[in-house]
Design a protein around this nucleic acid. Structure first.
Lengths: 236, 236
DNA sequence: GCAGAGATTTGATCTGGATCAAATATCGAG
DNA sequence: CTCGATATTTGATCCAGATCAAATCTCTGC
């Protein structure tokens, strides 16, 4: 399985903020030990509590970060291409706080954690890029926490739909890109309740047909959802 | 109010992980524009949405990081000496995601954000220390999120008490170091419910007398609380 | 195309925690 | 030390969301 990365993958990774500005030879150091693997859906990639062996980069597909305690399970985030995950554990050489599993067929690049830490010590541009990335991750987590603590499940769904609509181009009708069971877990509710929550948004012009969502009047829905960039804008 | 920092404060700050390894002259650059201010309790220091003017370092007292949306408010974290807060916003030059207010009389050092960013660009040891700090902050937030999503309020209180007991030396009897109203906010419940939650822990040997808590048998309480380092150990 | 497994929806009920109201305790200022 | 303000506790009730049960629906592999 271990082999040199295809040149195209090499280029895709190099374009990530995290690797864009680093010295070429350092980047080559990272790529030397890296490899790419394809995974079927529903494969557990990492388990919380283990120590970090590889920095993961998702090239295609989607990955669920989740966590369990006392037989309960919750979904913490969904990772999409092209981005890294579990960077903090890799850098601190600390145990994973979350587990990861593929949601769909996924292509993932793996870079040995010790290589990442070695290059981090040697390459200042890389160290700075990691700062930017971690600050971003931190802020995303703060936003998620606010979403959860300040909003009801109906409000979380409404804001999620508004974000999703923008992300998929802004058309009135768009597709959910994962199954409702998983959406429920992400929003911190049960599938049954998600189903009812969709009904609860009908008065605000939300129509559901399978995976297809139509928001008749985003203004109307936003009046209820009260989106706020300090919670919903995941880019800053 | 603006003036050179007292030498003792200078030393205290220099000892923080964040500043320990940086070049002396860069540290001096940071201290040049810095100043210290004393605040009475219940003073709002920063408001979410504003852009970051200063990196804050709490020298004594305690500060509540909180957030509001749609007339609701929640407490996100409590900051204690000696540590920094709102580092991520400062580094990214992005709006604060949380507001901050003093809980008690507090002494706080302020370093202009632009100085922090300038030194960050120039000093590699500082950049690396920021990585470690941000990774830590990120992981703390993940733990808080897990605590909230995976546990009931009774379980959160039980684990909080066990952590607090260890932190205050491990004696069976110890003091809460903030008022219950605030503890309720931190644990994500109402004061009324906190009061009932304390009652609910009586069967596990928790006795409450004002601010004084006695845990008769930590083993017994832990049997209920099921503490887990991946949630409760805030040091890794 | 069809069977069967899994996903989603619907209905009924239960429960943790919030809210409202009021009593009691605590603390700081004078 | 006492008053008044604020914090905490207690009781009653309410509500969001979970759980349990069962009825569809929708894929996927054959």
């Amino acid at each position: 399985m271990r082999m040199g990365l295809p040149e195209s993958v090499h280029r895709d990774i190099r374009e990530l903020h995290l690797f864009r500005d680093m010295v070429e030879s350092h980047f080559a150091d990272l790529m030397r030990g890296a490899y790419v693997q394809n995974f079927p859906p529903q494969i557990q990639l990492i388990s919380e509590g283990e120590t970090s062996d590889f920095l993961h980069i998702i090239l295609s597909g989607s990955v669920d970060l989740f966590s369990t305690w006392n037989k309960r399970e919750t979904s913490m985030a969904t990772v999409r291409p092209i981005s890294t995950f579990i960077l903090a554990a890799t850098i601190r050489d600390a145990p994973y706080l979350m587990s990861a599993r593929t949601l769909t067929k996924s292509r993932i690049a793996l870079i040995p954690s010790q290589d990442v830490r070695a290059v981090f010590d040697a390459d200042n541009a890389f160290a700075r890029a990691i700062v930017a990335e971690l600050a971003q991750c931190y802020r995303s987590m703060v936003k998620a926490q606010k979403d959860l603590k300040l909003r009801t499940s109906l409000e979380r769904l409404a804001n999620f739909l508004l974000r999703q609509q923008i992300q998929s181009g802004g058309a009135a009708t768009f597709e959910l890109d994962f199954e409702k069971r998983h959406l429920a877990a992400v929003l911190g509710m049960t599938p049954e309740n998600l189903s009812r929550a969709f009904k609860g948004l009908q008065p605000y012009g939300v129509e559901v047909d399978g995976m297809q969502i139509t928001i008749a009047d985003p203004k109307d829905l936003a009046g209820f959802a009260k989106p706020n960039p300090l919670i919903d804008d995941h880019s800053t």
